Simulated assay, not measured.
Amino acid sequence: MSSTNPRRPGRRTGDSTTRDDILRAAQSLFGSNGFKNTSMRAVAAEAGVDVALVPYYFGSKRGLFVAALEVPVDPVAQVVRATQGPRERLGERMAAEFTAVWEHPDTSSAMRGLLRSVITDESESSAYAEFMSTEMVPLVAELTGVSLETARVAVSMLFGMATMRYLIGVPLFVELSRDEVIALWGPHLQRVIDAD
């Protein structure tokens, strides 16, 4: 007679589908509740997993959100890289970091898809807007040493350019090379930073 070891009821531990289950739950909850009102505990409950597995796979709520939206880069790492160097060239480095992900063949189509999605999908738009307001713009301010108002202007300049160049494809923006974009936006960003 063979004995079986029935699975105990309760939250399951990590298995081959756990990460995907967490991502699906996060996408659903971020879409319906927004960034601020979605907790890692709620995501774990929705996915039917132990709450410790959420930070295990994604590190933080910010990391979970970035993964759920399928952002192809770590935006925090980008901001950190931009801050490494003299302040008087911060605008140039911000433009360079920002355009790199939009123009690299491994990430450009995903970034275009993300921007299109957050503009056209109401639930994603709401969650992304909240994420930018509560997480990313304050983080840009903190890491670059500028005020929240200055960070807000700088981020809007970069995303405005991205919308015109990479999403809509406005010829006046598209006809510029990446080096020309950096040379044009960098000094304008720097003036905003220097006026802080």
Results as ranks from 00 to 15, higher is better:
181 V>T: 11
73 V>R: 08
23 L>W: 00
150 T>C: 15
170 V>I: 14
50 D>E: 05
172 L>T: 15
80 V>L: 10
71 V>T: 10
28 S>G: 08
22 I>A: 03
32 S>R: 08
7 R>I: 03
25 A>V: 03
28 S>C: 08
61 K>Q: 11
189 L>R: 00
122 E>A: 14
151 A>R: 13
17 T>M: 02
158 L>Y: 10
175 E>K: 12
183 A>E: 11
172 L>N: 13
196 D>P: 05
24 R>A: 13
170 V>Y: 13
16 S>Q: 06
72 P>W: 00
192 V>W: 03
93 R>D: 05
10 G>I: 03
158 L>A: 15
85 G>W: 09
160 G>L: 12
20 D>E: 12
18 T>K: 02
46 E>P: 12
184 L>E: 04
125 S>D: 01
105 P>M: 01
174 V>H: 05
51 V>D: 10
158 L>K: 14
76 V>C: 04
87 R>E: 01
50 D>H: 10
168 I>A: 15
166 Y>S: 03
85 G>P: 05
24 R>P: 08
113 G>R: 00
65 F>R: 06
8 R>I: 00
63 G>Q: 13
97 E>A: 01
32 S>M: 02
64 L>M: 06
148 L>V: 15
195 A>E: 05
175 E>L: 05
52 A>T: 14
33 N>A: 14
141 A>L: 13
126 S>Y: 08
159 F>Q: 09
127 A>Q: 04
137 V>K: 15
13 T>A: 11
129 A>V: 08
154 A>T: 15
139 L>A: 12
170 V>W: 08
149 E>Q: 14
149 E>T: 12
161 M>A: 14
86 P>N: 09
63 G>Y: 07
111 M>L: 13
20 D>T: 06
141 A>I: 07
5 N>C: 03
172 L>F: 09
76 V>A: 00
108 S>V: 02
115 L>Q: 04
161 M>R: 14
153 V>P: 07
121 D>E: 12
13 T>F: 06
178 R>S: 10
69 L>D: 01
85 G>K: 06
81 R>M: 11
6 P>R: 04
130 E>R: 10
57 Y>H: 05
37 N>Y: 10
28 S>A: 12
150 T>P: 09
53 L>K: 05
24 R>Q: 11
188 H>D: 03
173 F>N: 11
195 A>L: 02
144 T>W: 13
196 D>R: 01
95 A>E: 07
162 A>C: 13
110 A>S: 04
35 F>R: 03
145 G>W: 12
61 K>E: 06
75 P>A: 11
65 F>M: 04
74 D>Y: 10
147 S>M: 11
86 P>E: 11
83 T>E: 07
97 E>F: 01
116 R>Q: 02
112 R>N: 01
138 P>D: 10
30 F>A: 14
36 K>E: 08
159 F>I: 13
59 G>S: 11
87 R>C: 03
16 S>M: 03
62 R>L: 03
98 F>E: 06
179 D>V: 00
62 R>W: 08
166 Y>N: 11
68 A>Y: 09
38 T>D: 04
184 L>P: 04
18 T>R: 07
88 E>R: 07
77 A>K: 10
113 G>N: 04
109 S>N: 03
109 S>T: 00
151 A>P: 15
32 S>V: 09
22 I>L: 07
33 N>K: 12
182 I>P: 00
137 V>T: 09
108 S>G: 02
54 V>A: 06
1 M>Y: 01
89 R>W: 08
125 S>N: 09
37 N>V: 07
